[in-house]
Design a protein around this nucleic acid. Sequence first.
DNA 1: GGGGCTGAGTTCATTCCCTGAACCTAGTCG
DNA 2: CGACTAGGTTCAGGGAATGAACTCAGCCCC
Lengths: 146, 146
Amino acid sequence: MNSAPAHDEPSCSIAASLDIVGDRWTILILRDSFRGLHRFDEFRRDLEIPRAVLADRLRRLVDAGVLVKRQYSEHPPRDEYRLTDMGRELSPILVGLMQWGDRWLGGPDGPPTVLVHEPCGTEVDLRFHCGACARDFSPLEIASRR
Amino acid sequence: MNSAPAHDEPSCSIAASLDIVGDRWTILILRDSFRGLHRFDEFRRDLEIPRAVLADRLRRLVDAGVLVKRQYSEHPPRDEYRLTDMGRELSPILVGLMQWGDRWLGGPDGPPTVLVHEPCGTEVDLRFHCGACARDFSPLEIASRR
DNA sequence: GGGGCTGAGTTCATTCCCTGAACCTAGTCG
DNA sequence: CGACTAGGTTCAGGGAATGAACTCAGCCCC
């Protein structure tokens, strides 16, 4: 029955991504995962998120393949949640949010966290890069083609 | 060295950004703005979003400075919503969502939309670039420092 | 000069989800 | 034994989302 009517968003990758990560708590959980938090109670204490919501979001993220649930202790049984490669590749979105907040909403203290290229330790940021022009360019120069 | 993060998140740019764009409908409205939709009814028809929610989200985005409301016709009085520079600089987030969806959730047809560097028309994508190493690198190589 | 149309909303009843508190289970510690 | 921790589930309530109906202003047409 797939006549794919126009108003049904069949093939928008942004909408598809939002079905998985289009929720405030979900993004904050992922942010904490990147920061090195992995356990239910670590998330709960850091975010002050209701337990039921946290359990739900973790379940969805595991179902989607963004996190894996792993037992890190058998006796007592204890679980932790770790980013998969699929989850780790969400970093540009987190970085985008961070840089935009730094630039447009930042307090006078400057950015509380900076990003580095792990192998060399150099501070970096996220840029659009054009191979043809051999240069980085501003977000204002981007356009889309179907 | 990692002192316990205050449960009050005063200075997290990600959380600050989410206060403005951390909502599914908001992101979809912005996606449509980048696509060239500007009017209330264009958004409403494309997204099938309830009118009350659309009015609320547009109001918030205007209040935040992401969109501006402009009269494009005096008689009859008609308004449109346009991205400000602040809004246009959200593109890395949208692009991040799009590329992640393309890569991990993509259908067999490939990406429905590609991005080009407007001045030269070349297809681009969003990459981390390290000036010190003089190369692009994968999201998996990123790390954060306080 | 009435009827229908468009754009841009507001109001309202219902439904749904988030929230916070309490409770549960398994295991460990003193 | 009783207290404590980790990782949840259950439940009442409140607030936001939803869809339908309504408003209002102006234009279009006959």
